[in-house]
Computed example of a mutant assay.
Amino acid sequence: MNGLLESSELLSPALESNPLGDPARRKLTVYLPPGYGADERRYPVVYFLHAFGNSGGSWTNASGFAPTVPQRLDALVESGAIPPVIGVFPDAWTSLGGSQWVNSDAIGRYRDYLTKDVVGFVDRTYRTLPKAASRAVVGHSSGGYGALVMGRYHPELFSHVGAHAADSYFEYCYLPDLPKAAAALLKAGGVEAWHAEFRARVSETKMRGDDFPVVNVLAMAAAYSPKKGEPLNVELPFDANTGRLRLDVWNRWLVHDPVRFVPKFMDAFRKLKTVYLDCGTRDEFNIRWGTRMLAEDFKNAGVERVHEEFEDGHSGVSYRFARSLSVLVPNLAQD
């Protein structure tokens, strides 16, 4: 790399005493472009939000063949394809596998963690341009969902949003996992019994393929339908004995679906300067369709957006960040 990766630790007030007891002290990786610190120049910033099941450290895990996202960012800067920027890679891992980058009574205040603690730390520590026009937020899957959450709530912080295969149209991307989760939880004897066995097993061996639908549903319930006093403080969207969909709880999930909240909060999204959306045509979670719905909603509302599809699935598509960065970064205010 021609730029520099710095690693530090951030103690997050927002995450102190979180319901899961997860660490409030988090690793923060920051990419600094070539020439950073050589003069008084200040730089725009791109915040990268990781997917469910990943952590902040996953951004720098080399595959052996493909470059990491920080390496792709560095190559774009070095080639002159994009102007120099600072890249920030925060960690929102939880013991349920992720946070959806939201504030939740069952998980913790991860939206506040990003918007208050991480952004504040970065602006205090590095030579940033501390304004919305000079900030972008991008992510894949749950990270893409988180980017849309930031567009909804915080256009005063981020004027540029990039969402790769963002969880959307929940009927397609989540509903197929509900009966799988119901069967596993019934067999285990409930949420707490399943989760205890899962945590013990993965600490000794590894996660099984059939674990993902269960832990995914539990994590999404923690984000979308938290309820204090229930096992893990979550309310499931199905009956534990019959698997029947509980429409009152399911409707709580749908309130958080981007295809529902984007049109409702379009005034906030109209404040954005750049919106980038993409998804693979073979996405295994059917997110292609929710992404198409969002693209249509933005178009109908007169919001400028770039919407692209490509021939691939959901995972292993970090190369697409090179494309979103090429769209977003040239639009960042440079002074």
Rank of each mutant, 00 (worst) to 15 (best):
S134V: 05
A268S: 15
H164C: 04
A183M: 12
R42M: 01
A166C: 03
P83I: 03
E16C: 11
G229K: 12
H195P: 01
P179C: 13
L247W: 11
V317Q: 04
A66T: 13
V88E: 06
T291A: 14
D105M: 14
P90G: 14
M220I: 09
E78S: 12
S17D: 15
R260P: 00
D278F: 05
M220W: 14
I287K: 05
F285K: 05
A147Q: 00
A133I: 01
K228I: 10
K299H: 15
E311S: 09
V275A: 02
Y224D: 02
D117R: 05
F170W: 05
G98V: 10
L245T: 13
Q71V: 00
K27H: 13
L129F: 04
H160W: 09
C173F: 13
E40V: 00
K180P: 01
D112M: 06
G64W: 04
G139W: 11
V214H: 06
F310L: 07
T291N: 08
N103Q: 05
T205F: 14
R25L: 12
T68K: 03
H154Y: 14
H256A: 14
L232C: 09
N103P: 10
V102P: 02
D239V: 10
W250I: 11
S8C: 15
A66C: 09
A193G: 10
A200H: 11
S99I: 06
R111A: 15
W194S: 08
G120W: 11
A182L: 09
E230Y: 10
G97R: 03
F238P: 11
G316D: 05
V30K: 03
G313W: 01
E304Q: 15
L328A: 02
S58V: 00
D91P: 04
A222G: 15
A196S: 13
Y110A: 09
D74S: 08
K271P: 02
V138D: 05
Y36W: 01
R244C: 00
L178D: 06
D257W: 05
A184W: 01
H50R: 06
P70R: 07
M293A: 15
F89D: 06
L185E: 08
M293F: 12
S63Y: 00
L10H: 07
P34W: 03
F269E: 02
G190M: 06
L73V: 10
E40C: 00
L328H: 06
A188F: 14
K228S: 13
T94G: 14
G316W: 05
A188Q: 10
G120I: 09
N103H: 14
L254E: 11
N2E: 02
A188Y: 12
V161H: 04
F121E: 00
F158C: 08
W253M: 07
D39A: 00
H140W: 07
P330F: 06
G120T: 10
L157T: 01
S142V: 11
G144I: 12
S318Y: 10
V327I: 10
R25M: 08
S141H: 09
L76F: 09
T242V: 08
P213Q: 02
F65C: 01
D210L: 07
M220V: 11
R270W: 01
W194Q: 11
S324W: 03
V191I: 15
S17E: 07
A200K: 13
D112P: 07
L76Y: 08
R135V: 03
P19M: 11
L32S: 06
P83V: 07
P130E: 04
R111N: 15
R244Q: 12
S168K: 03
D167A: 15
G313I: 02
E309M: 01
